[in-house]
Amino acid sequence: MITAERKPLAEIIDYIDNCRRILLVGCNECVTVCAAGGRKEVAMLASAMQMDFMKRGKTVDIREMTLERQCEPEYVEELAPFIDQADAVVSMACGCGVQEVVRRFRGKRVYPAVNTSFMGAAERPGVWAERCHGCGNCLLGLTGGICPIARCSKRLMNGPCGGSSKGKCEVSTEIDCVWQLIWDRLKELGIEDRYEEIILAKDWRTERGGGPRKIVREDLAQ
């Protein structure tokens, strides 16, 4: 899933300090799961903003809404009746959601309230770790199902580098050396010799190298 983390309050307040009416919009998908932009976080941020304004003697009128998924035009459409009474929209969705609101409501100031981070998995309750980089050409089949692009600090496809020690990355002991994991995995599967096959230089066009991407299903496209 897409993970995100709430922006510091000061930054959000900077965006909307001159506004009097705010439309604060959460999203009930990924950002809810990682407790960054769900209905509860919307209420928390609303309360925090309210207190911040009042503390400085200013008033602000915040309408709280949470859409099912902010990256779908039909759901974003639900904001239409309220958009005019708001000086600005603060979206707690991931980057996709924020931009979808911007696309739909021309001329309306829209600000992000969270920092969208990575596609990850729940390592344990309350902790999410990066798992996929979206490179567009998955090489998990070559590495026993563990991705070096997303989980090696240097994206080495023929690791490990010289800095791997005790299974941890040279950059930080918090980070597992993915090549250690891959090596253990290959041993588990009994295909250690697969390690010596060189993974050739990657064609990054399928990643960001080729520019922003689209997926089109002709059968579904209207």
Binding site: Q50, M54, R63, E64
Partner: peptide, 20 residues
């Protein structure tokens, strides 16, 4: 509480906060 003090000063109408 600084918020309460500010609130008292303005005696602002209770903010509209519909939680859906």
């Amino acid at each position: 509480n600084p918020v309460a003090a500010a609130r008292k000063a303005q005696a602002a109408p209770a903010p509209v906060a519909q939680v859906n």
